[in-house]
Structures are given as C-alpha cells and as structure tokens.
C-alpha cells in the first residue's frame, strides 16, 4: 500500500484526507502519481503551487515512490 495524504485546502476540495493506492503504483515518481490522480478526477491536484512530501520530507517530484511509502500533497504553508 501507498498512503496518500491531502492537507488544508486540498483536503477540503478533494473531500477526503487521503486515499490508499495499491502496490501497482510503486516505481512511479511523485509527479506521475499526481498526474494519475488528476486523471482520476482529483482536479484540485492540478496546481503548480502544490508541494509534495515523501515519508514526511519535502522533496522534488522526480523521486520514486515505493510500497509502504507515505506521500503528501500540500498547498503552500501559512503558519507562524
């Protein structure tokens, strides 16, 4: 399983806090997973300002996702 999480505005727009993808998605990059989810109807992910994290670290969309990983899509942060 790959656990995919959505935060803040993305969570509201998509209507859920996350989804689970089966291991057939392992080996894809974060960018490819984002694209697949957009094609499945999660149009909120079509946004250049989105930042991605892999296993709780910000990273570039070229990184490859493995089975058991946690992926997060986040809007720009607004704390402080």
């Amino acid at each position: 399983m790959i656990n995919v999480l959505f935060f803040a505005r993305l969570k509201d727009d998509i209507g859920q806090a996350g989804i689970e993808l089966d291991d057939s998605y392992a080996g894809k990059t974060l960018a490819q997973i984002q694209q697949v989810l957009i094609e499945q109807g999660l149009s909120a992910l079509k946004d250049d300002s989105i930042r991605v994290a892999l296993n709780k670290n910000f990273c570039t969309p070229e990184l490859v996702v493995n089975a058991g990983d946690e992926v997060a899509f986040m809007p720009p942060v607004t704390g402080g």
Binding site: F7, A53, F58, M74, P75, P76, V77, T78, G79, G80
Partner: peptide
C-alpha cells in the same frame, strides 16, 4: 518556519 513548516 513561515515558509517550510507544514501549518495551515
């Protein structure tokens, strides 16, 4: 913190 910490 304002640009990197994941708070919304």
């Amino acid at each position: 913190l304002k640009t990197e910490a994941p708070f919304w």
